[in-house]
Amino acid sequence: MSNTDSINIDSVIDVQNEHYRTELVALFKSCAMNTIVAQGEQTIEEIKVLAKNGCKQSLYITDTIDEKKLKTHETIPSIRMENLLLVDDDTKDQIIDSEGLMMFEHVLSCNQDHVPHMQLMSTIRKIRETKYFGVDKCVSYGAYVHRYVLSHSDQRQWFRDALFEFVIGLSSVLGRPTDAYAQFAVEVQEELLMNAIWDANPKLQEVDRRVPIALLPQETVQVEWSFDGTHLAIGVRDSFGSFSKPTIYKYLRFLFASEKKSMIRLQQEAAGAGLGLFMVLERLSSLIVTVAPLKSTEVIAVLNLSTSPKTFSKKQRSFQFFSV
């Protein structure tokens, strides 16, 4: 019996790492997904068969970047591919210089020989249920979601103070001081809010940001926070849907640079106008961007607060881009 509210999604696993491959097959089976394991030119044939059999959407999961193959997949009619790249400590440095990264909607880090179960299942659920927006999908079930609306740029001071206090208050839950996380969270929220207030709004892009601005009802920004005991998710949603994929991909490769010093050097060389985006990328565990073109953009930053801030920046990171 199938759920009529959800869409059917199949998966093609083209993963060289045998351990990941076995785990993915078992995981997708548990999600009741039709899964095909294929490699080399086989993937093209298998996707053609899926399309011929009426499959409208499929996940393509790989741990290598093969631009030629990905481009061929795109030419197969009547099937939409969601390309997902798995990276780990051994492979992430390779993606830094690969232009093919742009062809992936999802880049997820594997953690200690395991594929990221929760992120994969959450991704599948979003696609199946076609419900993409909201921080509730980035934290464990049951976590309370704080929801606010920002209608004036001056309200950012309240948002800074409130989030700072909120994260400081989590120290009792986490059993250690959270001062550094509070700083990171506020700085991330600041950049996301400035992006939503000014950069996303075609009318305000060139406006002097030192001048306080009242937003029209259709320009207001929705803010959400949620904490599930481990992850803090901060979501900021605008009403424009103008965020383009290349904007973020230009800087994304730095997120996966394993050598911190080289990352800083690269940042200094290339930051310029993208400084705000760099600041966001440096302080988070996961970044999830969802764009409904010309309608709305939601950027969710997830900070994993389960370890000390020292190891925070070395933790496995992930990036996802949903165009809906």
């Binding site: 800074r160 700072f164 950049e191 400035m194 705000g276 600041m279």
Partner: peptide, 11 residues
């Protein structure tokens, strides 16, 4: 100093 945002650094 508690936090700095990208526009604050430039300013």
């Amino acid at each position: 100093v508690r936090t700095i945002n990208s526009c604050g650094v430039r300013e």
